[in-house]
Design a protein around this nucleic acid. Structure first.
Lengths: 150, 150
DNA sequence: TATTGTTATACTCTATAACTATA
DNA sequence: TATAGTTATAGAGTATAACAATA
């Protein structure tokens, strides 16, 4: 049996320093994504929707799972993006209850342009790293992600 | 003169991979912060407000600068937090136009508890790293932050 | 004139609850 | 019965514009 004191600090020295750095870096990255999105009248959530649909055609329920949001929230999100012509609904061929969503040509174009702008927006943050440092950071972030989001 | 093609990818090999890893890690960290906040009926923005005020007493205009939000947004944010008893307004002694905000005892208590819960919430994500890896990641993230948020 | 804050307004994001249709 | 999606409703977050008080 595992007794878990909810107030216990995470094990290891300097762990709090890592957490602070990660949180700060994450807010900086979110701010960059937000800024790029805002230039195209897109919220952070809409940016995520476009990023997800760039590779996939999914059911609304799957989109809700990816984003961790309620299905009713997804309905509104998809409504507004569809009204803007960025994506489309279509009946799911295998399940008549389900509705698929996928990007329109305009949505694909915007998602592609946005991805490049995001890379550009983050480059001042990452541009100071040498190539070797960038590779090490990539490895460490990926290793962290393996353990995350339970 | 610097001609800057806005569509040009950032220099260096594997840079896109780093950007993807950073964005994914950031969304995971934001999800953890969001989850902890939601357990206390706090939005991500309210979590940030508490974190900022934990160390400082600031004017509303400074809070707006820290958060990158409009002053009218700050008014509402502070209204709701004040109504919950987490912080207080007080006139700024040096400038009669300005209003200071600072945490109440209850706000300090919640901010402290929240910080520990956030550390706990992120530990599954960071717990797989060895102490040496954690130190390297901290250094790399801090070095990135030096160049970021222009 | 410029800055600080508040208020009114409008829109997006979000969840809960109630509903229909399908599995 | 359980799942997929929509709608109605309510509240929080956000920006813009207009305003009062102070610098």
């Amino acid at each position: 049996m595992t007794t878990c004191d909810p107030a216990a600090p995470p094990a290891g020295p300097g762990r709090q320093e890592l957490i602070d750095a990660l949180v700060q870096a994450s807010f900086a990255a979110m701010a960059a994504l937000n800024r790029v999105g805002a230039e195209h009248d897109l919220s952070l959530t809409q940016v995520r929707v476009l990023a997800i649909l760039r590779d996939r055609r999914v059911k609304l329920s799957e989109l809700a799972d990816y984003l961790g949001l309620d299905k009713s929230t997804i309905s509104g999100l998809v409504d507004r993006a569809e009204k803007r012509g960025l994506l489309q609904r279509a009946p799911n061929p295998a399940d008549r209850r389900a509705v698929d969503v996928f990007l329109t040509a305009e949505g694909i174009e915007l998602a592609g342009r946005g991805a490049m702008e995001i890379a550009h927006s983050l480059s001042p943050m990452l541009g100071k790293l040498t190539n070797a440092e960038a590779r090490r950071l990539t490895v460490l972030l990926k290793r962290s992600l393996d353990g995350g989001t339970p």
